[in-house]
Design a protein around this nucleic acid. Sequence first.
DNA 1: CTAATTTTAAAACGAACGTTTGATTATATC
DNA 2: GATATAATCAAACGTTCGTTTTAAAATTAG
Lengths: 215, 215
Amino acid sequence: MVAKGPASADSARTRILDSAERIFVQKGFVGSSLRAITSAAGVNLAAAHYYFGSKQGLFKAVFCRCLAPINEQRLLALDTLLRENPKPDLRDILAAFLRPVMLHSNQDTLDLMAQMTAEPEELTNPILAEQFGELVTRYTAGLQLVFPKMREQELNVKLTFVIGAMLQTIFNRSFFINVDEVSKEEKCQQLLNFSVAGFLNNDQPGIPKEVELHD
Amino acid sequence: MVAKGPASADSARTRILDSAERIFVQKGFVGSSLRAITSAAGVNLAAAHYYFGSKQGLFKAVFCRCLAPINEQRLLALDTLLRENPKPDLRDILAAFLRPVMLHSNQDTLDLMAQMTAEPEELTNPILAEQFGELVTRYTAGLQLVFPKMREQELNVKLTFVIGAMLQTIFNRSFFINVDEVSKEEKCQQLLNFSVAGFLNNDQPGIPKEVELHD
DNA sequence: CTAATTTTAAAACGAACGTTTGATTATATC
DNA sequence: GATATAATCAAACGTTCGTTTTAAAATTAG
């Protein structure tokens, strides 16, 4: 009997995941101790290794449990979009990408996503590859349907802008800009407007001749 | 003789700052040990406490040494702009904000800025308040000259987008989107185009009815 | 019930951490 | 040259960490 285990064991496993999620978000990977996680979960210290093998295994389990459903949602939304319209609308693509994160995620998941960007790469790269590799590939392909003439590099740069704006928005760290009173929905709508306009911008005038004069 | 100290002492202090900057960026605050920092600097472990009092004091010193000059540059550029033109151009304001970071900073400084967003707030908040408080205030005021009718909340949200896009761009963490082959200058130019267009966007069509438009 | 397996528990391991101490060496001042 | 101050150093402090071990309790299966 390896598949499920008894109910008490499963709830212990879940309690570890829950408290690890909260503490990893607050303190980061190195800042979180298994002792703090397990004692907050009300289980023995050794239980963490029993269920997840190592601290890193627990981290990966926490992360995948949070992010997998969101990215499945994003991919499903993109599929639906492309099936209905082979020449899709830019706003619809960006909405499919942003809405599952901005609107349909609880705060813990958002915080975990933001926290992820700060962990050491050797820890996060395997997880990111698994959770974001296909996502980025398919969305890039989708955007290329909208901008068939745009160089892939330029498209990647703009997608990076959108992701950065999204992460900064869901991040609770504020750089002393207070946006707490703006609702989720309004932030998402504004980010969509901002991103669509940013994507559609044709080369602006005023390419600087004065970039070099700094003294 | 407290002001300067002998040449060897000053170079020890500087060597600690240099190696701390590099290691803090790579490993974060909790992930960096004073032993690794001091041994990389070729000084005794106790020298870190001798010069900076504590690990946190060292962190603050590293951060301020990096960020103070950049933000002074940004404020000076804004001042020059507003003195020359009481009704400044949006692109000029954003350029004054972005260029010192995107073009005139070395990679270590950029990485440190990005890393900063991930450290625990109790560690970073005092530093952020000191280094970014005035910056945000004055740039917000500058942007309000361009958009006198825009609500401050909306302006803050858009500024958050710009900062997020900037941080994501200078972050070496890629989410598997490769933009390494794009030059600094081109990224900066694209970010300016993107941000100006995003700021200028007037309410796009297709605002969903689920969002209530209050006043 | 008995036996096999899964889950929990307590204790200890060696290693690494920030910090402090006390002594020693270098530098500057008179 | 004597002396006060600044700087360096090795060593140790007490804690905390991830992980392992060993055994007891709980659960399941025959």
